[in-house]
Amino acid sequence: MIRIRVEPAPIDVAAEMALAEAGEAGAVATFTGLVRADDGVETLELEHYPGATQAALHALAEQAMGRWGLHAATVVHRVGPMRAGERIVFVAAAAAHRAAALDACAYLIDRLKTDAPFWKREVRAGVATWVEARQGDEAAAARWSI
């Protein structure tokens, strides 16, 4: 079971967890990304490529399902404006055992960072700046290459 959602509504982790745990899996690993407030960011705006975003996330989830034999994969990404401290992304991987769940969860968030068409704009003191891509993200995604 693959669940992909890209929407402006706040992410309900409890509801997503309940869905991820609903199957026959013995292990569920999750990742939650939050809007960091430590460098003066007041709001974060997330732009995406409608249609292509969902397809890219679905393709990643399918790869994870096949590679780790998952029972379920969930990717929920918020778009639009959000405030510091709010959830921006939630990933869950449900598998028979913990190693597959943990690895698949890390794979999904690492590859999402480099493969899914989202762009962040930070607003500090009323001034908006587009976030630059980080070299470290490419390296983190590359470690999953077979």
């Binding site: 990304g33 490529y49 292509a52 990404h77 921006i88 992304v89 968030i109 899914a116 068409p117 962040k120």
Partner: peptide, 10 residues
């Protein structure tokens, strides 16, 4: 055809 900067999601 879409043109854009390197992605920065997650």
């Amino acid at each position: 055809v879409a043109i854009f900067p390197p992605v920065t999601g997650g």
